[in-house]
Design a protein around this nucleic acid. Structure first.
Lengths: 142, 142
DNA sequence: TCTACAATCCGTAGTCGCTACAGGATCAAG
DNA sequence: CTTGATCCTGTAGCGACTACGGATTGTAGA
């Protein structure tokens, strides 16, 4: 009865991991370098060998990044997970805080979009050398 | 009858210009270094002396930045202004293109915000060590 | 006129989150 | 055993600033 390991601990090269997670190879190495991912074991020749736990962790990082969390936020979340100290309240607070920042950013962009639309509308778009957009941009704030 | 110059060509130090335009002193020097603003004349001791034309141009840059234009975009717009070759059509095209990029960015952020709000709502926020947010973030995409 | 101190000078390095090389070594298939 | 894909390390670059250190200059008050 040799241990049948199964697909639970599947080994993969960095390239395969990259394809599975949608990360670039360079990004994975970068995450390892900055301490976001633990250094995986290597082959005799020095190639990294990743297993499911690495894949899981990388997926987590990637999902967080897709949601706009900073790498520092991700580090914090992973820290909570790693120590086992994680409580819903902490995670929720971090998430709420980030969501509020995202909302704030949306508001900023909306204001920009409004002004840009105004500018576009006040511009005839012809070959005239005097452009209302340019004129307006030379005016101080608001 | 000495030329009364008037307030039209008011001279100012970099600090005063910064206060007038809302830019940091370092940013003004930075803009000069990358060729966005022309090098102003100096005092004997080497301090920069700015006049109204510099102020006008810096206001333009600042307004563009507030609207999210890249420094390269600003360079382009200023280039058009400088050559006198500026036509409404060109400026409008650049502005429309940028507005579309801003809209795109808003859509991205809105999607993030939606997911973040979902996450926040699925989390009880108590002291439980199992957190639904964390669980979800370990799941692959979507 | 002297002195104190604010403001300015320059150059370099750091921020964030990657991305793009260069110049090699290793691995798997045929 | 050769080929060619993949991997390795290290460094430099991006955008748009920001922050520093150490020196110099400008100016207002005594």
């Amino acid at each position: 009865m040799t241990a049948p390991d199964g697909p639970r601990r599947e080994r993969r090269t960095i390239g395969v991991l990259a394809r599975q997670t949608g990360c670039h190879v360079e990004t994975i190495r970068f995450y390892e370098r900055i301490g976001l991912l633990a250094p995986p074991p290597r082959t005799q020749g020095g190639h990294r060998v990743f297993d499911d736990s690495h894949a899981r962790r990388l997926v987590f990082v990637r999902r967080c990044r897709e949601l706009g969390f900073s790498l520092d936020d991700v580090r914090g979340l992973l820290g909570l997970v790693d120590t086992g100290d994680v409580t819903c309240a902490e995670v929720k607070a971090l998430t709420v805080h980030h969501r509020d920042a995202v909302r704030h950013r949306i508001e900023d962009l909306r204001r920009m979009e409004g002004v840009l639309t105004d500018l576009v509308q006040m511009c005839a778009g012809g070959t005239a050398p005097d452009c209302a957009i340019i004129e307006t941009l030379f005016e101080p704030h608001r």
